[in-house]
């Protein structure tokens, strides 16, 4: 039997690995790109700015509805949150793998 602490660390590693997958899939589900307004001849038009490989492209959306604007702004906020969480989870995975890598079999 491995020790209690090793058992807890192994359980946490399992949790972190599944969390990593969950955050990656949550990030993929969010609408891609960022909705930005542009003022052209006194009118406001919206574009989705997104990365396509090496290039940054602006996709014309026209006059977006308040619902769409809200959706994109919520997605932007959540994307930042999930990216931060994903980065922390990756650090946890590295730490836990390191902590579990001992002389005893795990």
């Amino acid at each position: 039997m491995r020790g209690v602490i090793k058992g807890v660390l192994a359980e946490e590693l399992e949790n972190s690995l599944s969390m990593q997958k969950s955050y990656e899939s949550a990030l993929q589900k969010l609408p891609q790109g960022c909705l930005v307004p542009k003022k052209i001849r006194g009118h406001v038009y919206y574009y989705i700015v997104q990365r396509q490989g090496q290039k940054i492209v602006h996709v014309y959306r026209g006059k977006s509805s308040p619902k769409e604007i809200k959706e994109f702004s919520e997605a932007k906020r959540l994307r930042a949150k999930y990216r931060h969480s994903l980065s922390r989870v990756k650090k946890q995975v590295r730490f836990l793998k390191g902590a579990l890598r001992g002389k005893e079999p795990i």
Partner: peptide
């Protein structure tokens, strides 16, 4: 975020 575990889909709310 919502995550599902096991083949039967037990729901968990996951945070780092």
């Amino acid at each position: 975020i919502v995550s599902f575990t096991g083949a039967k889909g037990y729901m968990k709310l996951t945070h780092e």
